[in-house]
């Protein structure tokens, strides 16, 4: 089947199998390998991207469901010369180690900040409970989200 969608601002029309997952479309068809796959039970959040501005686990969305949608991946939010405030805060606060959870964590964190007011440490922890990180113990991730939040308003 054909799927037409906008990814990081460019439009793509792709021929995919009906059961193709959005994450596979991104990784295998478009070679956007910044979005990762960490599990097979929709538990880890490594695959998180934005679909029409809200974070989704792209391993749990069919490519077909994304037909007509605007997708933003980690590759689409900033560049080394012009980092998104959340990317910059992750680096500043040492909120990543191996980097595997990081793209999904950043995409979730951006949505969290955009969709909530008055985040405190507890609220950030609860808001990110769908994203697993095995390296950082989350402490610095919480720091990073709270650092980026005011800069995103």
């Amino acid at each position: 089947m054909e799927v037409t969608l906008t990814v990081n601002g460019s439009q793509h029309s792709l021929e995919v199998a009906e059961n193709t997952l959005l994450v596979d479309l991104l990784r295998e068809h478009l070679r956007l390998t910044g979005t990762h796959v960490g599990c097979d039970t929709s538990q880890c959040g490594a695959c998180t991207v934005h679909l029409d501005g809200r974070s989704v686990k792209s391993c749990s969305v069919l490519a077909a469901q994304a037909d007509g949608a605007e997708i933003t991946t980690i590759e689409g939010i900033g560049s080394p010369d012009d980092l998104h405030p959340m990317q910059a805060a992750f680096r500043e606060c040492h909120a990543l180690q191996c980097g595997f959870c990081t793209p999904g964590m950043i995409m979730s964190a951006i949505d969290l900040v955009q969709s909530s007011d008055d985040l405190d440490r507890r609220a950030v922890r609860e808001g990110l409970e769908g994203n697993l990180c095995r390296c950082t113990g989350y402490h610095n991730i919480v720091d990073a989200v709270l650092r980026a939040a005011p800069q995103m308003k």
Binding site: T33, I74, P80, L83, Q87, F90, H94, L96, G99
Partner: peptide
């Protein structure tokens, strides 16, 4: 020092085996 390697990881340019 803020990590040198972070730039590729925060921009989705890390390269893991499956990539």
């Amino acid at each position: 020092v803020r990590r040198k390697e972070d730039m590729r990881f925060i921009t989705g340019e890390g390269r893991y085996t499956d990539d």
